[in-house]
């Protein structure tokens, strides 16, 4: 298998996995393949999809962001407060809040050369604490315009609820940023060869910071969506979402060593995680078993990444990628 073909194969894993899982669940529980269930899932995937797309930028730049769940909770809560103060559009405050958290992460990792895990662990703890502090120790912040927010997040217009369309547009924007804009190309370049970024005259730490800023902004948007769907800002929500977002991004073919990513494949990865969760739910399996399954999906995504890497080095004459020794 040539490297190019391997690259394409990696982005086809998630769609194939969706088909396989959907077929299995369709056999196990007849309701799964109904149109109603499909539409309901199409409305559900977007929180995870936005988090996963943000996570993809961080992973593409050879990093991780384990603070996305906490950032989504904080920005969703602040967004709910702003919405109560100035009306529903105030919910969009969540995006600059997420961007700010991403900027802190990006500065620490890019400029101050913190390891991504340490930096985002520190912000995870601090942001989690902040979310509790602004909300009076974890009280939910009910949206005054909850009915309108619910209409926007649940009533389908042409197949998707309006906020679903908005999230799809954001994912499309991420595709444009990654494929067609300089910053996206540079993020991929940084992931595959950091020295090259400096050699073409770009500033590596700024590129790295922008990857985490994008990640933070998408986490903020996910927080806004979370608030709209729940009809309240949920300061203690979001634990475990960082894991699901990493799993979705990696199932979606994002190379853990950085440098390769495809937004639509990541969307498929997020869909796959949702298919597994919904399918197990419809089959009457305990939600705790579903949690075990998500853990298995995370491990499987890691194994898939390692497996494809081994295939690449075995079937091509290229030397193994720098930094790995097998």
């Amino acid at each position: 298998m040539t490297p190019r073909a391997e690259g394409r194969a990696r982005f086809l894993v998630a769609p194939a996995a969706i088909l396989l899982a959907a077929g299995l669940f369709g056999v196990a529980s007849p309701g799964f393949l109904s149109l109603d269930n499909g539409l309901s899932m199409a409305g559900q995937i977007w929180i995870l999809a936005l988090l996963a797309v943000g996570q993809m930028f961080a992973i593409a730049a050879r990093g991780f962001d384990i603070s996305v769940g906490a950032v989504a909770a904080l920005s969703g809560t602040l967004g709910a407060m702003a919405a109560n103060a100035i009306g529903l559009p105030g919910l969009l405050l969540a995006v600059p809040v997420g961007l700010a958290c991403g900027t802190v992460n990006g500065w620490l990792i890019g400029r101050a050369r913190f390891q991504p895990i340490v930096a985002t662990l520190g912000t995870l703890l601090a942001v989690k604490g902040l979310a509790l502090l602004v909300s009076d120790d974890g009280q939910v912040v009910p949206l005054e315009a909850a009915a309108r927010a619910a209409a926007l997040s649940f009533d389908a217009v042409a197949g998707l609820p309006p906020l679903g369309w908005a999230a799809l547009a954001a994912v499309g924007l991420a595709h444009v940023v990654l494929r067609h804009m300089l910053v996206g190309r540079r993020i991929l370049m940084l992931g595959s060869n950091p020295e090259a970024v400096a050699l073409v005259g770009a500033v590596p730490w700024r590129i790295e910071m922008s990857a985490y800023q994008l990640c933070g902004a998408f986490a903020g948007l996910a927080g806004a969506l979370m608030t709209a769907r729940a009809g309240a800002g949920l300061p203690t929500e979001g634990a475990g979402m960082e894991l699901q977002s990493i799993a979705a991004a990696v199932i979606g073919g994002t190379v853990l060593a950085g440098g390769r990513a495809n937004v639509w494949a990541v969307l498929a990865g997020a869909t796959f995680v949702q298919v597994v969760l919904t399918g197990l739910n419809l089959s009457g399996v305990s939600p705790f078993i579903a949690q075990i399954a998500v853990g298995a999906v995370i491990l499987a995504s890691g194994l898939m990444d390692a497996g494809l890497r081994t295939l690449l080095t075995r079937f091509s004459r290229l030397s193994p990628p720098k930094g790995t020794f097998r």
Partner: peptide, 13 residues
């Protein structure tokens, strides 16, 4: 990170 987060989910589930 991937491994231990995966086993975290499985163990707590």
């Amino acid at each position: 990170v991937i491994v231990t987060l995966g086993t975290l989910m499985m163990a707590s589930g």
